[in-house]
Amino acid sequence: MIDLRRLHMLRVLRQQGTVTAAAEALHLTPSAVSHHLRELARELKVPLLEPQGRGVRLTPAGHLLIDHADALLARWEEAQAELESYRAGTTGPLRLAGFTTAISGLIAPAAGRLRHSHPDLQVRVRECETAESMDLLVAGEVDIAVVEPIEDGPPPDDARFEQSPLLEEPHLMLVPADHPLARAASVRLEDAADEDWIVSDPGACDHAQRVRMLCAAAGFSPRIVHAATHWPAIWSLVGNGLGVSLVPRLAEGPAGQAVARMPLSGGNTPTRRILTCVRRGSRRNPLIDLGIRALEEAARDHEPRNDRPRFAA
């Protein structure tokens, strides 16, 4: 009989790229991971790994096994979900991960609701970017990830994951409260073509790339003058008159900053798509289903409506 844990280790190795990184994700030693994978190859009577520089890579047989491992592990998740359905579904840990604004706008409200409706449920929240959330899902470290589509991210039909739309979030233009644009009912991106722009540091997320792409679609190249790592810093720079920025609706800044969040109009109104992601086969787990329904309830609080300028004094 094949040990499903060893299949899982092989899949994590493929995800992480090295034995050392896979061992860290699995909370094992590299020697233990290597031992289990050698045993798996011996049981199957085919080589699964081959040297590549100082590391290893999957052989063609290893890639073939991975394809079947995704299906086998998905069925195992389904079996666990079926067994879990015999339980009340209101106790035990539920682990959620997501990027910063997803936590503040969606995960934290959902976790708060669950704490009041199911006090015996142990909800655990972890802040991380989408790529890390996917790694944590594969490693079994989290149950639900709230993510956004990213370059080189998994496609919708990835055999490892089930991805479902959660929220289509509009972007808003952030301008100083005394800026002429703050007096309008809505603005277009091209209205800020002559402004200095503030973006998030490229090392933090793809905000700068997104601003450049959206502004290019609106017919101009933004004059990016300032970069910050966190949304509160962007709020402060805008509030002190140093430029404008483009922020997702879920993003919030500190109180006391004189800024206006302006709804965008025109043919290039940008949005951000936010998804829930779970391991394929685990969606029927009652605890995971409970968590996703709480997230969907939190998302309904942010459904599109007729926005008016929002000020923070």
Rank of each mutant, 00 (worst) to 15 (best):
A79C: 02
P232M: 04
P202K: 14
V146L: 02
I224G: 03
V123W: 12
V142R: 10
C277N: 02
V146F: 01
M213R: 14
P180Q: 14
A312K: 00
W235G: 05
W235V: 04
P248C: 02
V187H: 13
A218W: 07
E296G: 04
L10R: 05
T59S: 08
G219Y: 08
G281A: 06
G256Y: 06
A216V: 00
Q163H: 09
H226L: 11
T269W: 00
L58T: 08
A258W: 11
L174R: 09
L49R: 14
G55H: 11
I198S: 06
S133H: 05
L290V: 00
A22K: 01
L166H: 12
E84N: 15
H302N: 01
E297F: 02
A69I: 09
E169R: 12
L10A: 05
P222M: 08
H36G: 02
A217V: 06
D196K: 12
P51E: 04
A228L: 01
S104V: 11
V247Q: 03
L44C: 06
Q163I: 15
P170W: 05
L4F: 10
E195G: 10
R95H: 13
L181W: 03
L40A: 05
P176H: 13
R95A: 05
L114I: 11
I234D: 03
D194R: 14
R75E: 15
R300W: 04
A218H: 02
V19N: 00
A182C: 13
A88G: 15
A233H: 10
G253H: 08
V19E: 00
P270F: 02
C277P: 01
L166T: 10
E252W: 03
L137G: 04
I2F: 02
V187W: 13
Q257K: 07
D135Y: 02
E151T: 14
V125R: 09
A217S: 13
R293F: 03
R54G: 07
V138C: 04
A299Y: 10
A218C: 05
R14I: 00
R249K: 08
G98P: 10
L250K: 11
A102E: 11
R280C: 04
M134R: 06
H171V: 01
E127C: 08
M9I: 05
I198L: 03
A108G: 08
E24L: 03
P254C: 00
L7R: 11
T130H: 15
A139M: 01
N240W: 10
S186V: 11
A185L: 14
A177G: 11
F220E: 12
I198D: 01
L73Q: 13
E127S: 07
W76L: 13
T91N: 07
I66M: 12
G17L: 04
L44Y: 05
L37H: 03
L48F: 09
E78M: 14
G253T: 11
H226Y: 12
